[in-house]
């Protein structure tokens, strides 16, 4: 991905475009169905600095996605509140871009048309964004496919388009809910590297939800480890690996250390179970 191309500004819209700080304040979510109550998440407090890349890792069903929906204002929490740049979130927060696990592109629109949907729904003139749309698609390697339809592209390419759609209006906040979850391992690795470059060039605030420990560690400034349901924050780790991390960071002993630390948390919580291993007791090389 060519980072310089992405510095191209979105057309002037009067929307503030600095990265934003998020305050999650005692947020809990209880879902009621008939007589049963499900505690999806339980009292979460978290402050995210402007321009920070933060990952949330946890087992399936720990309320990661619920947390993301609450931050985006799509879901009102049962208790607690979310503040973005000091203002409480009531109802859908619009100054953001969202990427879901599946690309959810519209079948009847071309790839560029799908990217521009974001600005059309925001009642801005899509014409003003065509150039930026092309630049974004070029940057993720889809430049030649802008006039194709989603079904003509592979899953990885569709997901790249979905990321462009989340970035076209240059939002200060990017929410990503397991965006690489449905991709094959190689594509996933490449997308991860591309995303880091993209973030380094634009420094948006990013909340990245995943259940890959490696991915979380390689991408983030901080990793939030969540417990199984009801989701609580088990630990928050600061990732002090140098940037850009690219492909190489995997070989750093510090990387292994952090991954082991997180793995240890999941082991102690019963999310992971230590199987038999010939390497039991062997520590990673320093």
């Amino acid at each position: 991905m060519n980072a310089t191309e992405l510095r191209q500004e979105a057309p002037e819209t009067g929307v503030t475009s600095g990265p934003c700080a998020i305050h999650i304040d005692g947020v809990a979510q209880v879902f009621r169905r008939d007589d049963t109550e499900t505690h999806a998440i339980e009292k979460i407090d978290l402050s995210i600095a402007a321009g920070e890349f933060i990952s949330v890792v946890g087992p399936s069903g720990c309320g990661k996605s619920t947390l993301m929906r609450i931050v985006s204002g799509l879901l009102a929490p049962t208790t607690g509140r979310v503040l973005i740049d000091g203002r409480p979130v009531n109802g859908p927060y619009t100054d953001l871009g969202i990427v879901f696990q599946s690309p959810v592109l519209l079948d009847w629109r071309t790839i560029l048309g799908n990217v521009l949907l974001q600005v059309e729904l925001r009642r801005r003139s899509p014409g003003d964004y065509v150039e930026r749309g092309h630049a974004l698609l070029d940057a993720v390697g889809l430049g030649d496919f802008h006039d194709r339809y989603p079904h003509e592209l592979s899953g990885g390419m569709q997901q790249r388009a979905a990321i462009c759609r989340a970035l076209i209006h240059d939002p200060p906040l990017l929410l990503m809910d397991e965006p690489f979850g449905a991709l094959d391992a190689l594509t996933r690795e490449q997308m991860r590297i591309d995303l880091e470059e993209l973030w380094l060039s634009s420094r948006k605030t990013v909340i990245f939800i995943t259940h890959s420990i490696d991915e979380a560690v390689l991408l983030s400034d901080r990793v939030v480890v969540m417990s199984p349901r009801p989701g609580r924050i088990e630990r928050t780790l600061t990732i002090d690996l140098p940037r850009p991390r690219g492909l190489e960071a995997r070989h750093l002993p510090r990387f292994t250390e952090i991954v082991e630390e997180i793995t240890g948390i999941f082991l102690s919580r019963g999310v992971l179970r230590r199987g038999r291993s010939a390497l039991a007791g062997v520590k990673a090389k320093r």
Partner: peptide
């Protein structure tokens, strides 16, 4: 998801 996306655009 696509409806959520739409809601997030206001």
């Amino acid at each position: 998801d696509i409806l959520d996306l739409a809601r997030s655009t206001g």
